[in-house]
Design a protein around this nucleic acid. Structure first.
Length: 157
DNA sequence: GCCAACGTTGGC
DNA sequence: GCCAACGTTGGC
């Protein structure tokens, strides 16, 4: 089993949105980066766990935890001309973009903010979100980092 | 296949 | 809104 960190802008889709969905499950669509697509396709599997990270907001950070509940499959929004993530170069017989389905597990209350992660930088060395210029919307998390962040979420930092 | 121009991300 | 960092595009 692997661990991940997945970013979303909460104005667009937040952990509260996920928690209020039927079955608390959602298709994580809109990924338009090849590195992320390949990670989802080749490495992400049902049963993996992921942090839900809120980006581009007043208090960026990890707001909770979810489970990957499907393998990667074609993202239908790439074929929809009216969708903001439409890709005119994508063809149904040769999809360019994939998604996975995720299910809510729990919130961190309070969230583990980016500033808290930065304060633990020495112990979180290698965590991709803390690296300079890190922009990928999905990144792997080591088990060691996962467990440490769990403790931060429980106020045991 | 190089690389400049351009677009996007995301913290601040 | 700024801007650094990085990915993508497209002319050559």
């Amino acid at each position: 089993m692997a661990y991940w960190l997945m970013k979303s802008e909460p104005d667009c889709f937040s952990i509260d949105d996920l928690a209020s969905r039927p079955a608390q499950t959602e298709a994580w669509d809109g990924v338009r980066n090849y590195q992320v697509r390949n990670m989802m396709r080749d490495q992400m599997r049902p049963g993996d766990l992921a942090f839900f990270y809120h980006s581009s907001c007043p208090q960026p950070g990890i707001y909770g935890e979810m489970e990957i509940v499907s393998n990667a499959y074609p993202d239908p929004t790439q074929f929809d001309p009216d969708h903001e993530h439409h890709d005119p170069k994508a063809r149904r017989e040769e999809p360019r973009w994939l998604l996975v389905e995720v299910r809510f597990r729990r919130r961190f209350d309070p969230p583990v903010l980016l500033e808290v992660l930065r304060a633990q930088a020495a112990r979180l060395q290698g965590l991709r979100i803390l690296e300079r210029g890190s922009r990928l919307s999905v990144t792997p998390v080591t088990e060691r980092h996962w467990n440490l962040i769990q403790k931060l979420g429980a106020g045991e930092g």
